[in-house]
Design a binder for these strands. Sequence first.
DNA 1: GTCTATAGAAAGATAGAC
DNA 2: GTCTATCTTTCTATAGAC
Lengths: 219, 219
Amino acid sequence: MTPELRSLGVREIALDNSRADILAAAARCFMDRGYAQTSIDDVARSLGATKGRIYHHFPSKGELFAEVFRAGMDMNFAAVKPLSDLPGPALPRWRRMAMVHVLQMMVTKPFQRAVWIGVEMHLAGATTPEQRTVFNELLDYRTRYGNLFRATLLQGRDEGVFRFDDLSVTNQLMFMSLNSPIFWYSPRTGETRAQTEALAARVVAYAQGGLVFEGERAA
Amino acid sequence: MTPELRSLGVREIALDNSRADILAAAARCFMDRGYAQTSIDDVARSLGATKGRIYHHFPSKGELFAEVFRAGMDMNFAAVKPLSDLPGPALPRWRRMAMVHVLQMMVTKPFQRAVWIGVEMHLAGATTPEQRTVFNELLDYRTRYGNLFRATLLQGRDEGVFRFDDLSVTNQLMFMSLNSPIFWYSPRTGETRAQTEALAARVVAYAQGGLVFEGERAA
DNA sequence: GTCTATAGAAAGATAGAC
DNA sequence: GTCTATCTTTCTATAGAC
C-alpha cells in the first residue's frame, strides 16, 4: 500500500482485503488439490505472488487452512442459524434451512470443500498438541452446526412428517445429500439466480424424499 | 519364500498373497491419511516392513494407488454387473443393485475410500503423460460402473416408479447416498451379517425415497 | 524377497533486502 | 508488505548387501 493511502486511514481495509484474497485463493487451491498436495507456493502463484506474502499474513499452512475452514463455517452459521431459531412446524422450517444450506454449498463451494477436507482429515497429520487443539475446535464448530438440524429432524419425526429410526445415520445421509453440490456443481456461464435456486430445490426435494419415505413397507 | 516351497510350485500363490497384503495395507493408509499424506514408509510400517518390500512389488506410489483403485472397482463390478444384466421391472432390480452396492461400500470400505480419493484427485497431481493415461483409464472404469445404474434409472422413470428430470444430477445424488457409508460406517464389535444388512437397507430406503419423491408438489 | 543406506527432489518455514 | 535466497525436513525412488 502507498503511504498516501495509509495516511487516509485505509490501513485496516487493505489488510483485510489482503487476507481475504489469500483466503479465497487458498480455498480454491485446497479444493483443486486437497490439503497435503497444495503447497504454499501454489497458493502464492495463484495470486501472482510468492510465499513471503502468505507468511506475512498467516504463520503456517495449518493456520491458513484453519482460517479457510472457519470462514466457511462462519458463512453457514450466519445463513442458517437465524432460520433454525424460528418457531412453527418442522417441515417448512427444515425446507428453508435445507435450501439455504444447499445454496451456501453452491455459492461458496471452495470454502465448503475445504471444510469437507478438514472433516475428512480427522486428526491424521495433526502432529503437535497445539495443532490438535485447533483441529478439535474446528470439528466441534462443525458439529455444532450439524446440531442446528437435529432438533428440527426430531420435531419433524414427532409431528409425523419425517420417518427414521436412527438420528445419527439419518443426519449423515441428509448432509451427504445436501452437501453433494460441492462435488458436482459448477455454475453454467451466465447462470441466473433462478436457475441456481431451481437446482438447489431439486437437491432439497431429493433429501426430503429420503426423510419422508416409508422405507421397508414400499419394498 | 524358502527354496523348498518354491520347488513345490507355490511361487505364484506366495507372490499373490504378498501383493494382496500390500494392497490391503495401502488401502487402509490411503483411507486414513489420503493419497498425498500417505508415505510409502507408512504403508511399509503398517506391515512391519520397510520400503524395499513395497518397491519390489510395485514400481511407484502412483501405480500402487492405481492398483488399489482397480481392486476396489473390480469388486464392485463383480458384485453388481450380474444383477444389472437381469431382465424385469426396474424397481426390484434397482433395489438389489443398490443393496449390493451399499454392502460393498461397507465391507470393502478402505478400497472404496481409495476409489473416492482417486475420483476427487481428478487429474491434479498427475504430472507425466503416462500417469494421465493411467488416471483417465481409472476414471473411465468408474464411469462405466456408474452407467450400470443409469439404464435402470431411466427404465424406472419410464415405468413411473422414479421421478426426476435431470439424470446426471439424480445419478450424483443417488451415488452420494449409496456411497455415504464409506465416510460414517464402521462395524460394531461382533456385528452380525443381519445387522450390517439392516443398516444397508436403511441407506437404500433413503435413496429410494429421494428417487420416488414427488418433489415440488409436496412443498 | 526383504533390508539398509543414500541420492535427489519437493515443500514448509525463516532471514534479510527493498 | 512483498520478494529473493536459503535452511531443513520429509519423502520418492534406487543401489547394493544378504
